[in-house]
Design a protein around this nucleic acid. Sequence first.
DNA 1: ATATTGATTTTTATCGATAAGAGGAAGAGA
DNA 2: TCTCTTCCTCTTATCGATAAAAATCAATAT
Lengths: 302, 302
Amino acid sequence: MKTDTVFKKAFNRTLDLMVRGDIKDALPSENEVRRRLGVSRTTIRKVLAELVHRGVITTDRRRVGDRQINPVDYFPDIETLPRNLHVEQQFMEWMLRGDTKPGTLINELDLARQFGVATNGIREFLIRFSRFGLLEKRPNSGWIFEGFTEDFALELFEIRVMFELRSARLFAKQPDQSPLWPKLEALKRAHLDLLEEIEHRFHDFSSLDNRFHRLINEASPNRFINDFYDIITFIFHYHYQWNKRDEKQRNHAALIEHLAYIDALLSHDPVGVELAANAHLSSAKETLMRSLVRMGRTDGCA
Amino acid sequence: MKTDTVFKKAFNRTLDLMVRGDIKDALPSENEVRRRLGVSRTTIRKVLAELVHRGVITTDRRRVGDRQINPVDYFPDIETLPRNLHVEQQFMEWMLRGDTKPGTLINELDLARQFGVATNGIREFLIRFSRFGLLEKRPNSGWIFEGFTEDFALELFEIRVMFELRSARLFAKQPDQSPLWPKLEALKRAHLDLLEEIEHRFHDFSSLDNRFHRLINEASPNRFINDFYDIITFIFHYHYQWNKRDEKQRNHAALIEHLAYIDALLSHDPVGVELAANAHLSSAKETLMRSLVRMGRTDGCA
DNA sequence: ATATTGATTTTTATCGATAAGAGGAAGAGA
DNA sequence: TCTCTTCCTCTTATCGATAAAAATCAATAT
């Protein structure tokens, strides 16, 4: 039996639309709502039915009633997360926080019980996750966890540098009329904005980081490079979610490096691009390696 | 209910051992057989029980009887293939032979019925397969097949060249005492042997090809490069399984290129290595691209 | 006609059940 | 004491069932 997370999320989002005034008086057609929320009409109808049932809208012509919408009407956030995300989060927590050692073998059944899902869900997650190079399957037996080790990080960065330099070079070579230049300019402004407010908005850096590196790849797209960047994004997302040490400084420094990198790109100077990219990447690597060493020492020897 | 392919394969292999005379008179201990076949003792016991049941060995002390072993005693090969391999093969056939167009959407239920397995098996295969960059999942809906197109091949080769040049360079730089040099020598000899008998042994090239490129990576291992080579191996394996055109010439040419490449490596000459590697890779690319174009034309316009 | 809603069919996500296979504990034999 | 075997438990591979969500088809209204 599927979870009804899609419905609950759609319901909450519909309430949002009404609260924000994007929907007032009569509701738009089912198809219109469907388009806005990006779910099927079946789900929309369920949402509408529930709204009627709760007296938020009237049955005839579905007018928005004068009933106030309050926080209790919303489904709790957890119930709007699909199962596989749930599994992912719990697994990453198990792996990164639990200080899971290289060579640990993973027991599907055990994890399934721990996470409260069927073994199937665990297995599907593990298959998906295995492309990150941290797991290996022994047929008819379990999985072996290779460990989020220094070696892993070094190998990851070796590829990352190759790919990034390749893409940056190609980006710099684009014709002047390319639509990517204005995009890069916009991104530069976003960086400057963030820099101004770095004191309290430093969390926003990671999404900017992502946008930047993906933009670099857009100049000459290659699906394998893009896929590889998924790995980086994923690993960093979870790793730094639980390693907040020096987050502000880290992000501040990276922001400055990005700006130098962007300027080098904007100046079309290949040597400068290479230098700036290298500088940024090696500092990112440094940061990760340092935090890995620290992680390993959480048992008290530092 | 699991399939008993492990048992059947182990059974066949045990018969092989007896036929080949590796096992005569009394059988070795369960643990010994286990070690040789690489399966669990549970499975071995099942095999032994079956052998007794069929009168191939005697119950007491498990002596090999004088009953002749004949082909009928073997389980058919198909029953020794695990389910997921089955799915894989059928899917690849569906995709490559069926001339499946880019943008085709994949229906798990439909494939499950077609291949005679539960939807779960299909889904697990698709998740595993999606790392090859040919599929994309739409949550709560199906999968979309991106197509085994020219773009795909071009992107694949761009990465392949980057990785191979990197690895070849590092390989050439190894110290003289590295154990990889003798391995390379051995591989060279294998190439020469095959070259002599190319007329009727040209099928053996692909495994040699694999060994060669994996050896190159061994000098400075990187799991992501290795994983990427899995993609290449997989794609080529199936693609050329159904595109046998010019197979002999193709392999013959590649063999010659390999030899030049190997000699360049053995001479530690970085420029020569780069040239030879490039030459080989671009010819491999040529071959693939040509066969892709032909595939597209199987509808008769050529 | 065309867009909107209503009813119906298909497909996906998810669970639970079960035979096959892995592996451990302890007795039996050398 | 050590290996081999028997017995037993736990895990994986695989199926089938079912609610949720998507997709399609039919009816109605504008």
